[in-house]
Simulated assay, not measured.
Amino acid sequence: MTIPGRLEDEAACARLCVDFANHLDARRYEQVLDLFTENAALDRMGNVSAGREDIARFLAARPADVTTRHVCSNIRVSFDAASEDEAGGVCYVLFFQGTGEAGTGAAQLSGPPSVVEYHDRFLRTAVGWRIRSRRIRMAIRA
């Protein structure tokens, strides 16, 4: 793998982290699902959704009166020596949650922010890099 190619791969994986947060916060759930492989796993602090259909059920169950913002930082992507098509990643996420119907003005903050970590496995597919698995773990709770 060339250095420019590896940098492009790293940027594509990092973009998945940011796109996940932006699409989730904007409730663009079809776009969220497109970031995952068909058989992906999403582990939200022990609550595991297996496959896109299960992830779709989790997304559909998110309360309409809760507004979230996920601020991603310290994104680190590392590539497997054995495969050019697999990578791992860690991302710190500052998480804010408020109440109030989306689109009706600023939500009321429902508590102090927390920090979670995304622990990811990425896979290069025919349509580009996708999230094969994401483990979300609490790092700092208020």
Rank of each mutant, 00 (worst) to 15 (best):
I55V: 14
P63Q: 12
E8Y: 03
L33I: 10
A26R: 03
N47A: 11
R52T: 02
G98K: 06
R44H: 15
N22M: 01
A11Y: 06
R15E: 11
F58M: 15
L94Q: 13
F58N: 13
N39T: 10
F79I: 00
R62H: 03
R15V: 04
R6Y: 04
N74G: 15
Q31A: 12
N39E: 05
A21M: 00
D54H: 11
F79Y: 02
A87H: 13
R69K: 05
E10M: 09
G88S: 06
R57E: 15
A26I: 01
A50F: 06
G51V: 08
V48L: 09
E10Y: 04
Y92T: 07
L35G: 04
S78A: 12
G51Q: 07
H23N: 05
R62N: 02
N22W: 01
A40Y: 11
F79G: 01
V90S: 08
F36M: 09
L42V: 05
L59I: 07
E10S: 04
A50W: 05
L35V: 11
Y92Q: 11
A21P: 02
L94M: 14
L42E: 03
T68N: 13
F58E: 14
R27W: 11
R27G: 08
R28T: 02
F96H: 07
A11Q: 12
H23Q: 02
A12W: 12
V71N: 03
Y92N: 14
D80M: 05
A60E: 09
G98Y: 04
E84F: 05
D25Y: 01
N39D: 14
F20L: 12
A82Y: 01
Y92E: 04
S73F: 05
L59V: 04
V90D: 09
T68V: 12
A61C: 09
H23S: 00
F79K: 00
N74H: 15
E84W: 04
D9R: 11
C17T: 12
C72E: 02
Y29L: 03
D65P: 08
A11P: 05
L33V: 10
F95C: 07
C17D: 07
R28Y: 03
E84Y: 08
V71P: 00
I55T: 09
R28N: 08
